[in-house]
Design a protein around this nucleic acid. Sequence first.
DNA 1: GATTAAATCTTTACATCGTCAAGATACTCC
DNA 2: GGAGTATCTTGACGATGTAAAGATTTAATC
Lengths: 209, 209
Amino acid sequence: MTTNYHHGDLKNALIRAGIEILSKEGMQALSLRNVAKKAGVSHAAPYAHFADKQALIAAIAAEGYKKLYQQLVTAQNSTNDPLARLLAVAHAYIQFAIDEADHFKITFSGVVEVEQNYPEYVEQSKQCFGLVVAVVADCQAEGTLLQGDTQLIAVSIWASIHGFVLLLQGNQLPSTLLEQYSIQELFGFHLKQFLSTESHIPSNNVIQP
Amino acid sequence: MTTNYHHGDLKNALIRAGIEILSKEGMQALSLRNVAKKAGVSHAAPYAHFADKQALIAAIAAEGYKKLYQQLVTAQNSTNDPLARLLAVAHAYIQFAIDEADHFKITFSGVVEVEQNYPEYVEQSKQCFGLVVAVVADCQAEGTLLQGDTQLIAVSIWASIHGFVLLLQGNQLPSTLLEQYSIQELFGFHLKQFLSTESHIPSNNVIQP
DNA sequence: GATTAAATCTTTACATCGTCAAGATACTCC
DNA sequence: GGAGTATCTTGACGATGTAAAGATTTAATC
């Protein structure tokens, strides 16, 4: 099975090679030929398993979601308190983005253009979102989060975390703040900011053109 | 001055050509050679004005920030009520991201890797952030937003908006929600969500590993 | 105003990339 | 064991970013 000509499990080997390139050399080094070389096959071999580069990237992105999901599950299991869980999940999210920056970027930054063509990717994405929804639901049941459409609230919370992470990755956080606070402090403040506010806004004034 | 050989203002013409390509053909069509062709010069001409492709992209990204800033200013001037201003700015932000999707992506999605090498880009970025800070400060002065470090709160709000926009652009918003609500409704709910919450969380519990 | 230097643009060339086609090799199923 | 299929290699092509060398225009100096 594991002869020389037939690799045996080239498809997964290519995905792993791609992820390794992302973590060690960065996005610009992620070429099909480079991935093939790292997997020890010729430059056109990937075409036996992926229709084109997009398809390989989609598989790598799906794997990114999978790894992220595992991290989130670990965070989720770290405590029984619902709100603490939510915070732990948030911290796991940003930690993954920091540790595996380019894998995270590939997973999210729209490199996968027509997601619907890659059901594996869509499925992993849904699994992640499902976890967030579950954690939010627990907080709602406990009364430590706003009542209302759980999915809406989950999206909102996810978006807030995601936005912070991307500003961080894109070096868009103002340098004045970065000199003053650590990333952990900034993120902690951000979480506190959107999870607990004494408020203000007449709700009928919010949705407007 | 405007002879045939010497273009006269090729640098800006290249930037404009790049932006036009982004809006009409999309990111994958943004090659140096394509930009040069659209500007009517040979494929190596850009190297008289830009060190490499990254430098041209940085200039295009800076222009993206500039255009975004103009939109935000218009929104800011649309009303005198501080909170309404904040909401108007938020809507202008997402509208720009929808109207000029690929220009927005280039501006933010980390294509500019070493921002500090492109001072023009950094300056435009600061100008945008400054506007958000000003709007947030007005709300604080009026008492319609949480008191506290204005920059921190501004970053937090920006991150929330930015995150929603990026999830939207990346098709990461769950399809179940997209079938149920319009983008405007979802965004409106998101704003309401993180701008006005009845809360919950013991503040000493938020910042943690 | 002529000469020189500098800036701008063209042409040519090269390595790398994604992709395709044709062929070689290994596995599978009857 | 032979036929068919899946997998992999080799070779080729056009497109891309970039460098080098030369042509052309503008600017500076005298």
